[in-house]
Amino acid sequence: MNWRNAFVLAQKESRSEWRQRSIFGALLLYAVLTVFLIYFSFRHVEPILWSGLLWLALLFGSVDALSKGFLQEGRDRHFYYYTLIGPIEFLTAKLMYNILLMVVLGFFTLLLFILFLGFPVVDIGAFACILLGGMVCFTILFTFMSVLAARSGKSTTLVSILTLPIAIPLLAIIISATQKTMIAHSFGEYSNDLLFLSALNILLLALAVILFKYTWQD
C-alpha cells in the first residue's frame, strides 16, 4: 500500500472532474431539481418528514454521482490502471475522491433544503456527525457495488438493484437518528445510533478492502 500513489490518483480524479465541469454541474442541477420537486410537492414540510426527504434526496443524488464513475471508465482504462497500481491503492483513491464529492454534494443539497424548506435541527453538532457518517456509509457501499456492476458491463440499474436493499435499513436508522437531533439536547439520546453507524462504517470498509482484490483482475 503506497499512500502517495493513492493520493496522486485521487488528485487526478478531481482534476479531470474539474476539467469537465459540465458533469459536475449536472449533478448540482440534479440536486437543485430534486429539492425543487420536493418543495413544489409539499410546500411546507413537517420536521418528521424533513429528515426523510433530505436523506432520500441525498440517496438518489449519490446513486447518480457515484455509479457513473466506474461505468464511464470502461475496460481499457481498467487495464491501464491494472498495470500502474495495486487494488488497495486504487480503492483508497476512489474512496477519497468519492467522499470528497459526496461531502460537497451533500453540503450543497443541505443548503438548498435550508433555503427552501427550513432547518428544524436543534443539535447541530450531532446532526453534522450523523450527516458525515451517513454519507461515508453510502459512499463505501455505492463505490463497492458500482465496481461489481461496472465489471459486468451492464447498465446502471444493476447498481441500484445491488445497493438499495442494503441502503433501506441504513436509511431507516439514519433517518430516525436525524429526527432525534430535532428534539433532544443531550448527546446520550443518539450515542447508540452514532455508535452503530461508526461500527457499520468500519464493517463496510473492512469488507470492501478484503474483497476488492478479487475484483481486480479481469
Binding site: 463497492f144 461489481l148 465489471r151 459486468s152 445491488l162 469488507l207 474483497l211 478479487y214 475484483t215
Partner: peptide, 8 residues
Amino acid sequence: FAAIYNVF
C-alpha cells in the same frame, strides 16, 4: 463476482 457479493 457472485462469490464476492455473497460474502458481502
